[in-house]
Simulated scan of single mutants.
Amino acid sequence: MSASSVEGCAVASVPGMLEEREAAARVRVEGLREEAARSAEVLEATEAELDRR
């Protein structure tokens, strides 16, 4: 295998690695958004409870 072939493989794998990292980051972001929404619901319920007191 020539040096250019090895470099070509390495370069080809970088976009793939970046796509995998981006996909994982999107999954994490979605999980964080869901967690934030749950926290906002709890906060809203807690504030409503305090307002009734």
Rank of each mutant, 00 (worst) to 15 (best):
M1D: 08
M1R: 05
S2C: 07
A3P: 05
A3L: 13
S4A: 06
S5M: 14
S5I: 14
V6N: 08
E7P: 05
E7I: 09
G8H: 02
C9A: 11
C9T: 03
A12N: 00
A12F: 00
A12V: 00
S13C: 05
S13A: 07
M17K: 09
L18S: 14
L18C: 03
E20F: 04
R21K: 10
R21H: 05
R21G: 06
R21M: 07
R21F: 03
E22R: 12
E22T: 13
A23N: 04
A23P: 00
A23W: 01
A24E: 11
A24I: 02
A24W: 01
R26V: 04
R26A: 09
R26I: 09
R28F: 02
V29P: 04
E30L: 12
G31M: 11
L32P: 09
L32W: 08
R33M: 03
R33P: 07
R33E: 04
E34G: 08
E34I: 06
E35K: 07
A36H: 13
A37R: 11
R38V: 02
S39P: 01
E41L: 10
E41Y: 03
E41T: 05
E44A: 14
E44T: 10
E44S: 07
A45V: 03
A45M: 04
E47S: 13
A48F: 01
A48C: 00
E49P: 00
E49C: 14
E49Y: 13
E49F: 12
L50Y: 11
L50H: 14
D51I: 08
D51M: 15
R52S: 15
R52E: 13
R52V: 06
R53P: 02
